[in-house]
């Protein structure tokens, strides 16, 4: 297997769109030819060599090509988009659409990834050592096909809207997930080893979701069917099985209705009362109020000025309405 080493030497001022960084595009090319491939920044077009140093060469086919990317790649989008074979290894973080519409091969990101990663994925393996943001392995807007095959492994946490419209493949998340897991799913398997925030399996037609931690609040449209012994990670375990979503259409097999299933380990009861969602406090203390008063003494500050001041000094983002009320209050 031939190896291409890309090192980011210049951090882009905006964001870089690099859908050409895939084994498919690099195969059969020399370092110089690879350097000539395009990257895009806003409405301008540049070359890979403008931002990266390129070492090595591509293999004869995509399957024979491995790309190792290092440097501060936090602002690079679309790495490995639509790749079909070969390997990519990223030493740091990547931005949106990493492994989007991936069909085969392997991508390993050692840092974190942003939103929309592995959307519409049909095959291959996508491994993230850090966290993933929202819409992991979901569908593109308006598409009814999210992840359809392959495997996604995230060792850290994932954001909201994970696996929307999923209908195949496996997702394994080591940490917690935010709201809306597996919405509209019609197949596939999701394993969450931490806690799920709620709205698990909303509008799910078919598919399996395992939550090994707690579900913060189960949807009222899921019904506890009973206990079942299921094999997970090669071990047989007892699970409470919930079926639903009762508000959604469901197919039939041999006269029996097929529901989506959520598995929660026995003994780990669902958090009974919903944890009150922590409201972000957006009020100033008396001391802070005094400070604001002092800062604008004898002036007629505009709402925007006071809002900026409060944001800069106390890191509180108040609504303009609140600020104007506050100013009225201070005047009196």
């Amino acid at each position: 297997m031939d190896i291409v080493k890309l090192t980011l030497t210049k951090v882009p001022e905006l964001y870089l769109e690099a859908e050409n960084i895939t084994p498919d595009h690099f195969a059969g090319k020399t370092a110089q030819q690879i350097g000539e491939l395009h990257v895009h920044l806003g409405n301008t077009t540049a070359k890979i060599s403008d931002y990266f140093t390129v070492e090595g060469k591509g293999g004869a086919t995509a399957a024979d090509t491995k790309i190792i990317i290092s440097g501060p790649t936090d602002k690079v989008k679309y790495i490995g988009m639509k790749m079909t074979a070969g390997e990519i290894e990223v030493q740091g973080n990547t931005d949106m659409y990493t492994a989007a519409w991936m069909a085969g091969g392997k991508i390993h990101v050692k840092g974190n990834v942003d939103s929309f990663c592995a959307i519409g994925m049909t095959g291959g393996e996508f491994i993230v050592d850090g966290n993933a943001k929202n819409y992991l392995a979901a569908s593109y807007r308006g598409d009814w096909r999210g992840m359809q095959g392959g495997k996604v492994i995230v060792k850290g946490n994932a954001g909201s809207d994970t696996a929307t419209f999923m209908n195949g493949g496996t997702i394994d998340i080591g940490g917690n997930v935010d709201v809306h897991l597996g919405t509209h799913a019609e197949g596939g398997k999701i394993i969450v080893r931490g806690n799920a925030k709620g709205r698990v399996g909303g509008q799910m037609v078919k598919g399996d979701i395992f939550v090994l931690g707690q579900v913060e609040r189960m949807m009222p449209t899921y019904i506890l069917k009973g206990e079942e012994e299921v094999e997970l990670d090669g071990k047989k375990q007892m699970f409470h099985v919930w079926i639903g979503d009762m508000g959604e259409r469901h197919g039939k097999r041999k006269g029996e209705i097929i529901y989506g299933k959520i598995y929660v380990p026995s003994g780990k009861a669902e958090a009974a009362a919903p944890a009150a969602r922590a409201e972000r406090k957006k009020k100033l203390t008396d001391k802070q109020l005094e400070q604001v008063k002092e800062a604008f003494k004898g002036q007629e500050p505009t709402v925007q000025q006071v809002r900026t001041y409060i944001y800069d000094t106390f890191d509180i983002d108040m609504k303009p309405m609140q600020v104007s009320r506050l100013i009225d209050g201070l005047k009196r």
């Binding site: 909303g202 009222p220 979503d245 959604e248």
Partner: peptide, 12 residues
């Protein structure tokens, strides 16, 4: 969302 889905289930 929960209420909407519950209404859908109730309609069915």
């Amino acid at each position: 969302y929960e209420l909407l889905q519950a209404l859908r289930a109730a309609v069915r």
